[in-house]
Design a protein around this nucleic acid. Structure first.
Length: 655
RNA sequence: GCCGCGGUGGCUCAGUGGUAGAGCGCACCCUUGGUAAGGGUGAGGUCGAGGGUUCAAUUCCCUCUCGUGGCACCA
């Protein structure tokens, strides 16, 4: 007999080898119908798995939150069978459950298109209705490898070959008898295909490299979403639709903030309204960092190859840099641009750090000068791959709210804490609470001793622990010169973008022979903390537009108030209200066009103008305005003086 | 860079092997209207670029380019 502890704490005795299904039956028949899996201790398992020892268990029902992953995983198997039934020449590879759904990677000479989706979905529904049991079998490695090789499934065979020899090769069969479709899988699965249900939808096809390596073949990935019921599915699809409407590229066009053009791909043309946001944000950051003890510098855009050789970028990252020959070009328009092979080169800076080290090196620095916090709104260029570009979120030209803190080793913790606190304050001011921290630790290819890395990683961890900040860790993802801490924000559809970053660097000062004089007169290398709060102004504005769906806080809005007249007779008064607003520093516009007020209200609402001052003869006579705020249908008639001073108060930047 | 999809007036998009259409916007006229589109008239397009097939290509094919969804990349 074994002891099974149920979630309510009750302990029941069962024969060893009892299954989750047996336990469910022993409790109630209706429960047995509803359960689809069992959690044994902390692992989700098949309902049919025999339990051989004492355990705590919980039965998972299909309506439970935990069922989602099982539904999605099983749906992936169903999709794979459907695809292979329809396209027998197609190899299946891997297909995990992911957030909101699942995908499966297929290898086929002719890629799928979305036009194939209805056919595949139909076949999936057939398989689900067939209600085949998922049957787990354990095979030997050789047996499994031979089976898949004979079937022409080279990718599966490769997967099995790479599994540790200690591991059982488990196979899940989801059809009848010997001919049932099967897949290599660790499990667990629900009892049968019908539990997948009908609330799924194939979403998109995409290319994906085999095993995530660009040296490998490109497979065709089909993404799908799957839910417990139609209501959940509909809600998800609706949410996606709404998110699309918040896309910063769409809003940027609609609100006339910026544009992109193929004559400067990956760079942004800021329009007056967009640049107003940009400037407001930049000025705010400038006030923040000045208050936090930074000094601001401006360094060159083009710098000599030698600088990049010293920093190491020339050797390591040249292919991502814009390199410019330092030669006078030929004026002969029919000949080559350069008549002689260029020997000397400059490069547009892909980052500001070497330039800041150059500034640091001017003159002699004392330990008393540290920490030296040097900031720059640094415009950088990186020759990003075409496929990487994405609106304001991934550009070739961008401006970092960059900064480098030169400090002693014993100042790392304090500076790291200080930076995290500054970032928290700024994100709070800007209305961001939904972000997380990611610590990226030492990569395989790195410079510096393990001792230094220990110190550096500990410095970052200590800072986060001191501030009680939860964080994730990505082992091995750090920069070659030091570990990284990132603040990750999400865009409208949940894609993640690194914004704030803090990186420890023991390396660059050594490469540049940048030193300070210690108390005892000896020369020492300072530690460099690379840091940015927004990351880049462009990316942050992009994320912010999506997060606010274009309805930015008043202090950032390009047009804060529009004064709209109802009839021509009120135009003079409207003009005077408008001028008063301007005089008080409000970014206002005047609308005295020959249009109906309905029309004006609609247009400015669509344009997301936060405050609309409507004036007709009634208001003119009483020196008032009828205020209509964005998102509200209410009108509030207020004395003009009061309305303006209220708006001025509200439009104050948070710092 | 790789795989899929796309590029038609300023914007959103329809359409066709016989050199193009709508709505919005824009200009002008009428209308002076009280909180989400008043009416009329008009201008505006080398149908992304190049090549091919064809009597004829915006339409079919190829190459390129840009965009887009992913993948890879992201110092």
């Amino acid at each position: 007999m074994i002891k099974i502890t149920l979630p309510d704490g009750a302990v029941r005795d069962y024969d060893a080898g009892v299954t989750g299904f047996d336990i469910a039956i022993s409790i109630s028949k209706s429960l047995a119908k509803a359960v689809i899996a069992i959690r044994i201790n902390d692992d989700v398992c098949d309902l049919s798995l025999p339990i051989e020892a004492d355990a705590s268990i919980a039965l998972i029902k299909r309506e439970d939150e935990e069922a989602l992953e099982l539904i999605r995983h099983d749906a992936a198997h169903v999709m794979a069978e459907a695809v292979q039934t329809l396209y027998p020449d197609c190899q299946v590879t891997i297909g995990p459950a992911i957030e909101n759904g699942f995908y499966y990677d297929f290898a086929r000479d002719e890629p799928f298109s979305t036009e194939d989706f209805p056919k595949i979905e139909k076949q999936m529904r057939k398989i689900i209705e067939r209600n085949s049991k998922f049957v787990r079998e354990v095979w030997t490695r050789d047996e499994a490898i031979k089976f898949f090789k004979d079937k022409g499934e080279t990718y599966k065979a490769e997967l099995i070959e790479d599994l540790p020899t200690s591991e059982d090769i488990s196979i899940y069969r989801q059809g009848e008898g010997e001919k049932g479709w099967l897949d290599l899988c660790r499990g667990p699965h629900m009892p049968s295909t019908k539990h997948v249900g009908q609330a799924f939808k194939l979403m998109k096809v995409a290319g994906a490299y085999w095993r995530g390596d660009s040296n490998n073949a490109m497979l065709t990935r089909i993404y799908a979403t799957a839910w417990r019921d139609q209501k959940e599915l509909d809600a998800h699809l609706k949410q996606l639709e709404e998110a699309e409407a918040r896309d910063h590229r769409k809003l940027g066009k609609e609100m006339d903030l910026f544009h992109f053009s193929n004559i400067a791909q990956g760079s942004c043309f800021w329009h007056p309204k967009g640049f107003t946001i940009y400037n407001q944000l930049e000025n705010y950051i400038r006030r923040r960092i000045q208050n936090d003890g930074y000094v601001e510098v401006k360094t060159p855009q083009l710098m000599d190859q030698k600088l990049w050789e010293t920093s190491g970028h020339w050797q390591k990252y040249r292919e991502d840099m814009f390199v410019v020959p330092d030669v006078v070009p030929s004026n002969n328009e029919n000949g080559p641009v350069f008549e002689t092979e260029p020997k000397d080169f400059m490069a547009l800076k892909p980052m500001n750090c070497p330039a800041h080290v150059e500034v640091f090196k001017q003159g002699i620095k004392s330990y008393k000068d540290l920490p030296l916090r040097m900031a720059e709104m640094g415009c950088c260029h990186r020759n990003e791959a075409h496929g990487a570009l994405h609106g304001l979120l991934r550009l070739r030209q961008f401006t970092q709210d960059d900064g480098h803190i030169f400090c002693r080793e014993d100042q790392i913790l304090e500076e790291a804490i200080r930076f995290c606190e500054l970032t928290q304050k700024i994100y709070k001011d800007l209305g961001f609470e939904d972000y997380y921290l990611m610590l990226e630790t030492r990569p395989e290819q790195r410079i510096g001793s393990d001792d230094l890395w220990d110190k550096a990683e500990k410095g970052l961890k200590d800072a986060m622990e001191h501030l009680n900040l939860p964080y994730k860790t990505a082992e091995g993802d750090g920069a070659f010169y030091g570990p990284k801490l990132g603040f990750i924000l999400k865009d409208a559809i949940g894609r993640e973008w690194g914004c704030a970053t803090l990186q420890l660097d023991f390396n660059l000062p050594r490469r540049f022979e940048a030193t300070y004089v210690e108390q005892d007169g000896s020369k020492k290398y300072p530690v460099m903390l690379h840091r940015a709060v927004l990351g880049t102004l462009e990316r942050f504005i992009g994320v912010m537009i999506e997060s606010y769906a274009g309805k930015l806080p008043l202090w950032l809005q390009p047009v804060q108030c529009v004064v709209a007249s109802i009839t021509g007779d009120a135009n003079t008064y409207a003009q005077s209200v408008y001028e008063d607003l301007l005089a008080q520093g409000i970014r206002a516009e005047l609308d005295v066009r020959n249009e109906k007020i309905n029309y004006k209200v609609r247009e400015h609402s669509v344009a997301k103008v936060p405050a609309l001052f409507v004036v007709g003869m009634r208001e003119a006579e009483e020196e008032k305005v009828a205020i209509r705020r964005l998102g509200s249908k209410d009108q509030n008639v207020v004395a003009t003086k009061q309305a303006i001073s209220d708006l001025v108060e509200e439009a104050k930047a948070p710092f």
